[in-house]
Computed example of a mutant assay.
Amino acid sequence: MTRLRDGQTFLDAAGWGRAAREHIQGDASTRLYERLTLGDRTAILMDTPPRAPGPTVRDGKSYSELARLATDARPFVAIADGLRAFGYGAPEIYAADLRTGFLLVEDLGVEPVVALGVPIASRYEAAVDLLADLHGREVPAETPLGDQTYRLPAYDVPAFLVECDLLNDWYLPRMTGVSPEPEARETFRALWAEALAPLLDGPLTWTLRDYHSPNLTWRDDREGIRRLGVIDFQDACLGPPAYDVVSLLQDARVDMPEGLEMALAARYLAARRRADPTFEPRDFARAYATLGAQRATKILGIFVRLAERDGKPGYLQHLPRVRRALDANLAHPDLAALAAWYRERLGPSGQPE
């Protein structure tokens, strides 16, 4: 009741207190969303209260701290403002109470970038173009937040590793009935640290981390890259450029038509090469496979966790698609040692879930 009262007080102060309110299906987080309608105007109310980091899992830190996850509304506001300053279609912040975690933001609409679960190629091309443009920029490590600044955290090896651990903590126990022994876990972590190290020595960018179809909308009334609406970037870090590209092109919820993933990847590479003749596609291909395998590893664990801990079994339907992506990425020659570790515990490629 206190939260409802605070939300109404926030809306009253923002001039939207009399708006009609409609609940919006949210994401996998605990955030809540409502679409507000006031006359011929609409806006989105985000209810994202500050939360505690959670219990310690490693090195005296919680999962949220290790994985560099946002625990309040500040990162969303800072990154939204920064992306709009680059010319991208992130929502305008109409009003914000950073203490309580209420945000009133621009409504980016509901027109998707997929149709019947299949990518709309022209819209995915725009999404790829946005990434190529972003990754060609010299991005700052800090961005304004009101009269202060917000510093993006580093998407570093500990962050990647704690995400990979979700496979051992959730997916393997449920799907194979076996949780790896401590020695096998340490080998797993060492292999991943070795595979990730070269990527983090290269150029870094704003890595939005959830740049995929559920968080993209299409707006025909805009021009150029701004036709693409972008949300759910509060966990953005400074990380490898390939991460968001593979997030988009190996979407856990979308069946990619044959040839489209490679065509879109080629479009991205061509744009990067035009902007920077020294850009090396072969290095990008290795990063793409490595981060694709890392992301698939994380998602397998997250989807099982959502089903078993949070009572959201619908995510399990996507496991076969994610497993296929994992197998495809682990086929890269530089990931042979990791592939052997997975093969021993997951079985042969293509094994049904």
Rank of each mutant, 00 (worst) to 15 (best):
325 A>G: 12
285 A>G: 07
164 C>H: 09
167 L>F: 04
281 P>I: 06
147 D>Q: 14
54 G>P: 06
167 L>H: 03
55 P>C: 02
56 T>E: 15
2 T>F: 08
220 D>K: 14
149 T>Q: 15
49 P>G: 04
125 E>D: 02
64 S>T: 12
336 A>Y: 02
167 L>G: 05
7 G>W: 06
150 Y>L: 12
181 E>N: 07
8 Q>C: 10
209 R>G: 02
306 L>A: 09
292 G>E: 00
317 Q>R: 14
348 P>L: 08
245 V>A: 06
81 D>A: 15
310 D>M: 03
182 P>A: 04
17 G>R: 11
236 A>C: 11
300 L>M: 10
350 G>V: 03
158 P>V: 00
65 E>A: 09
26 G>A: 10
104 L>G: 12
51 R>I: 13
241 P>H: 05
23 H>L: 15
88 Y>Q: 07
20 A>I: 11
72 D>Q: 01
65 E>I: 04
53 P>G: 07
310 D>C: 03
17 G>Q: 13
266 A>P: 14
330 L>D: 00
101 G>V: 13
230 V>P: 02
265 A>G: 13
123 R>E: 01
132 A>T: 06
110 V>C: 14
6 D>W: 08
135 H>I: 04
301 G>T: 02
197 A>V: 07
289 A>T: 00
336 A>C: 04
151 R>W: 08
77 V>I: 02
288 Y>E: 00
104 L>E: 10
134 L>A: 08
167 L>V: 03
1 M>Q: 15
91 P>G: 08
